[in-house]
């Protein structure tokens, strides 16, 4: 507990202290050009809020599914050795059903970037 508090306090002091030192000791002469998003001569055209491609969402959906699969596999893989062949077959069925899903996604072109 004491260790935790010491780490917490030192961490906070480090972050706040370095930002405060930069704020107090560095010179401030802001101009419009300096405050621009890209400080190298490129003028931004619109706001930073753009509409993302729907492909990201599809990949995100597929990621959620296989994330859950990975979480389910972890405890089973850890005990698989002690349970022998039957556990291996059970896990193989589990993975086979999900590989069907992956094959479907692949076939339908959900993994391709258009």
């Amino acid at each position: 507990m004491l260790d935790f508090i010491i780490y917490l306090v030192i961490g906070i002091i480090f972050v706040v202290g370095s930002f405060a030192a930069a704020y107090f000791f560095s010179p401030h002469h802001p101009t419009d050009k300096k405050l621009a998003t890209y400080e190298c001569g490129e003028d931004p055209i619109k706001g930073s809020w753009i509409q993302y491609n729907v492909r990201y969402y599809l990949l995100g959906l597929a990621f959620v599914i296989f994330d859950v699969e990975a979480i389910f596999l972890l405890p089973c893989v850890l005990v698989m050795k002690s349970l022998g062949l039957i556990a291996f077959i059970e896990l193989a069925i589990f993975i086979f059903i999900l590989v069907l899903g992956l094959a479907y996604a692949w076939r339908k072109g959900a993994l391709e970037w258009i």
Binding site: M80, F94, L100, G101, A105
Partner: peptide, 30 residues
């Protein structure tokens, strides 16, 4: 893990089927 591999193996496989349905449905909808 031991419970999923022995007593609850049917729900474990059904989870896999459920994930498959979710994936196919998500692709079909999106």
């Amino acid at each position: 893990g031991r419970a999923l591999m022995t007593a609850y193996v049917l729900p474990f496989e059904v989870v896999s089927l459920l994930l498959l349905v979710a994936l196919v449905g998500a692709i079909a909808l999106a």
